[in-house]
């Protein structure tokens, strides 16, 4: 019976080959060639696209994407960790409710959440009207990187809070009591016990925020204007308007590699943490 059931995996393996492996392979091929994309015989091996990535203007965009994504990840962590701690310490009676209110905004379409900030942050938007009413100077966040950062933090904050909360809520209360029994005060207990135990949650939170943040083109497209494109916008342009698939493919590969490297680093941190835990 098992052997017969195994056959069910083969059609999907073929499907994966066609729709997952080949497309990525095509991107890889286009990234290292030049020529007419509609004419396979005209494709020639070339490092031109990658050379183009190294031009200062593009290098800057990549750097900006990385810095903005890292900054929003850091802000999410700083805002989200205390929130996750507060939620996990909330009386069990209200905890579900407190948590649901954190999750409800994610149920709203990503685009609409970003769009909502457009109406808040635009030069004549609600925020500036409010500031004027208070007699304060206007804020010129949008379009610009400030607005993009706000949009990223807003969109991804729950993805930082949830995994950290999950890990924190699973920490055995006896462990905390043991720590204080052994003479640790609240601060020592936090840094020596709670924080190390919550590393897996922090790691998956960082991955869940950083990855979509570094590859977004919606947030930057709607809140950043044309002045501050990110690598996502650049890829979109190459495939939709400029039709330079070779360059777009090279950028996609670079984006994938960037994400792969950060994920590898994060999982290394997670493993080291686990190993150190075992040593102690």
């Amino acid at each position: 019976m098992n052997k017969k059931l195994r056959l069910l995996a083969y059609p999907y393996s073929v499907w994966m080959g066609i729709f997952i492996v080949i497309p990525l392979f095509l991107i890889l091929v286009y990234s290292v060639t030049t020529g007419d994309i509609h004419d396979a015989s005209s494709l020639k091996l070339s490092g031109e696209s990658y050379k183009k990535v190294l031009e200062p203007i593009y290098l800057n965009i990549i750097k900006d994407s990385f810095v903005l994504a890292a900054a929003s990840t850091l802000i999410c962590l700083l805002l989200g960790y205390p929130a996750a701690m507060i939620i996990s310490n909330t009386n069990i009676k209200y905890r579900g409710l407190v948590l649901v209110f954190f999750i409800v905004p994610i149920w709203m379409n990503f685009l609409l959440r970003t769009y909502a900030w457009m109406s808040l942050l635009s030069p004549n938007g609600f925020l500036n009207r409010f500031l004027m009413w208070l007699g304060l100077p206007k804020l010129e966040l949008m379009p610009g990187q400030g607005a993009v950062l706000v949009g990223m933090v807003y969109n991804f904050l729950p993805f930082m809070v949830l995994p950290i909360y999950t890990v924190l809520s699973k920490i055995d209360k006896n462990v905390l009591e043991a720590a204080s029994d052994l003479g640790g005060n609240k601060i020592v207990t936090f840094f020596r016990v709670v924080l190390p135990l919550s590393v897996p949650g922090v790691v998956s939170g960082i991955t869940m925020v950083f990855m979509p943040a570094v590859s977004t083109f919606i947030i930057s497209g709607l809140l950043g204007g044309s002045k501050t494109p990110l690598i996502g916008d650049l890829i979109e342009q190459q495939f939709i308007s400029s039709r330079n698939w070779h360059f777009g493919s090279a950028l996609s590969i670079i984006l994938m590699v960037m994400i792969l490297i950060s994920m590898a680093i994060m999982s290394r941190i997670d493993q080291n943490n686990a190993q150190e835990g075992r040593k102690v």
Binding site: L26, I27, S215, W245, S249, S252, L255
Partner: peptide
Amino acid sequence: NINNLPVLNPDIVTGVALMTL
């Protein structure tokens, strides 16, 4: 591992890759 690619890859890469195909 192959099955996980669309989950782990950024949407934009999955999108342009499929468009290319």
